[in-house]
């Protein structure tokens, strides 16, 4: 059991410093950029060298690190880390024909620079790791935290999921067919019935331990699967629910990773059908699509469990229930990487 004691999310929507999910921020040119609010504690000289992913991460974790000074470790999930710095360095290599290059972009480009910066700023010499397994990078970070807490009960960890939009990864994802070809904004994302989605970015950081006291929610269970077989994913989802929710408990809300890509609609329909009576929520029009967007979904689920209210902005289908106890997340990255995460009211 992994109890969430505090979380901060910097996203394209109004999620930081205050949360306001009444109003939807619109996408432009298939992109939803996170509203970066920089942590004032970071020295400007250091800030200048940071790429957006690192800035997002240190800005979200800053207030958490201040409040929780005895963290045992830092566990990060990011598919690409500082992609902008990475390609900037690559462009320098080609444009200057491998001449004299400055190392800043190179050092900032390695995905582990994010966890390293968080560790450095908090002088944290404990466990420090970066999971980069594309659409399951954040899920593996969560699983890592589960295992750490099992070995070290009483310890507290920072877990975060981060990715950034750079012009370059946007181009690559466009070429991969992950981005819609026709103009579509996030308001009409689910009506498009075409391939691809819109790009997003953001960070969600969580302070977790196995102490129930003071926590509003907990991550109860987690399952990951690589599959292109709808039936197999559906069966795994049903098994996940039956293993982790006893008979008298039901799913109150399914937070679905539906992203407007018509190729994967069948998966979401099957998962929706597996939780009859549950409210259905969607969030990709808030966060955009990116590999670690499930971190945004976990933040949103924690928020809903705290508020005991589902923001109208995310509702696909209402349910009759009043209390929200159990939320299940289904995420599907490009039809291959699937995850189920169960969060419950603490």
């Amino acid at each position: 059991m992994l109890y969430i004691h505090h979380s901060i999310c910097i996203s394209p929507q109004f999620t930081f410093p205050e949360v306001n999910l009444e109003e939807l921020v619109r996408s432009t040119d298939h992109k939803l950029y996170a509203k970066l609010i920089v942590n004032p504690d970071i020295p400007p000289a250091m800030l200048r060298r940071m790429g957006k992913a690192v800035k997002l991460a240190v800005s979200a974790s800053g207030p958490l690190l201040k409040q929780y000074q005895n963290l045992e470790g830092i566990i990060v999930g990011t598919a690409n880390g500082g992609m902008e710095d990475c390609i900037k360095f690559l462009n320098q290599i080609i444009q200057y024909e491998e001449g004299v290059l400055t190392p800043t972009n190179f050092v900032q480009s390695t995905p582990n620079a994010i966890a390293a910066q968080i560790g450095f700023l908090s002088k944290n010499k404990g466990y420090n790791i970066t999971h980069v397994h594309r659409g399951l990078a954040f899920e593996n970070a969560l699983l890592d935290a589960f295992m750490q807490l099992d070995d070290n009960p009483g310890h507290t960890y920072l877990v975060a999921g981060i990715d950034e939009i750079s012009d370059y990864n946007f181009n690559i994802e466009y070429l991969c067919g992950y981005i819609k070809k026709e103009p579509v904004d996030n308001v009409h994302l689910y009506e498009s019935n075409t391939h691809g989605s819109i790009a997003g970015e953001g960070v969600a950081a969580f302070v977790v331990n196995n102490n129930q006291k003071g926590a509003f929610s907990c991550v109860k269970a987690l399952k990951m699967l690589h599959s292109t077989d709808k039936d197999e994913v559906e069966q795994a989802f049903k098994q996940f629910l039956s293993e982790n929710l006893s008979d008298n408990k039901t799913v109150d809300l399914l937070l679905s990773g539906e992203n407007g890509d018509s190729r994967y609609l069948d998966y979401y329909r099957l998962m929706e059908a597996a939780v009859p009576g549950a409210a259905i929520g969607r969030y990709k029009h808030l966060s955009g699509e990116y590999q670690t967007s499930s971190a945004f979904a976990v933040w949103l689920a924690d928020y809903v469990l705290r508020q005991q209210q589902i923001p109208e902005l995310i509702v696909k289908q209402h349910s009759g229930g009043n209390t929200i106890r159990n939320i299940v997340l289904y995420t599907n990255y490009q039809g291959l990487q699937h995850s189920f995460i169960l969060l419950s009211k603490s």
């Binding site: 390695t110 995905p111 790791i129 970066t130 690589h226 599959s227």
Partner: peptide, 17 residues
């Protein structure tokens, strides 16, 4: 590798330089 061998267990990639 997952695709090539039809792997169904946990798959992960770690980058700590």
């Amino acid at each position: 590798l997952q695709q090539k061998f039809g792997m169904k267990g946990i798959i992960n990639t770690i980058n700590t330089a």
